[in-house]
Amino acid sequence: MKDTLRWSYAINAWNLRMDVFVRHEEQQRALKTLSVLGFDHVELASGMGGRWENLGTPEIILINHGSAEGLLAFLRRAGISGVSSWCWDPGQPAEETGYAFLMTRNPADHDAIVEAAKPFVDLLAAAGGDQLVVRPAGSAWMAPPLGDGDAGIVGSLWNRVGEVAAAAGVGVSLHYDCLQPFHTEEQLVSLLDATDPALVGLALDTAELTIGGIDPVAFYDAHHGRVAHVQLKDTRFQDAGQEYLTPGAEATMLKGGAGRRIERWFYELGTEGGLVDVEAFVASLRAHGYGGWVVVEGDKGGNATEVAMLNSWFLQRRLGVEKV
């Protein structure tokens, strides 16, 4: 995209389940789709690891492509020039790390998390990526309510990861999702306050914030100095109150709709009945001179290709962004 903002697209939309999006030609097709839609960078996302995460975890990427240069060559074959960022959830057990179950709220796990972050940081840096986008803490329903010290504990971990990343020339940004425990604006700000602005930023996800009851435009206006990364998608629904605390919320809320039969939460930009004012949000990014990546996402939205095409249409026709 030819723009003052830097646009990227999240490749995870195609990686629907563990045994799809494995063959290189499938991945090439997705990358070519993004390329012709005007994107020239992609965001990677970690998963469960193992032999099927060919664009997910460092060890497996290296088995496939040998090196960061090999990965970039693979992307360039489809006309994609680089990697903007990499999403990583340290709480997600992965095969390479023996399915270790690590919790950022548990200081005893911090050393292991810092260690586990290193391969991501190294490969991301070598591939010219900008941000390691991390899930700050595991789902709220899985742990007791936040205590006074939790923001400090979690913040101290991400400061450590931030130092490791900064040494490699990569930033760390904490991704807000609607199930993690720093849920209210106040809680989120307390977490940001517990981190070093020079090392750790916020990855602002427009749909997730909206579902969580926070207006992304207002939040960005108030806290733009801390926003280091943006993920752009739309939603038609908000958490009705405490749905994120429902046991098994990943399934019961985000797939089952917490009894409301909402089987799909995330939508393409400009969807009918969408709650995110994307135009206003992007205008605000421009007004504040935002310099990071803006990653458009289409995950959990049905047909990944159709959603990507509709997203690109929105960028071209509603946001006035010209294709490369």
Binding site: R29, K32, T33, V36, L37, A78, G79, T305, E306, M309
Partner: peptide, 16 residues
Amino acid sequence: GDYAESTAISRWYAKN
């Protein structure tokens, strides 16, 4: 196969 994907891939080919 998928129409959306075929549409995108063929346009990629035309362009590139």
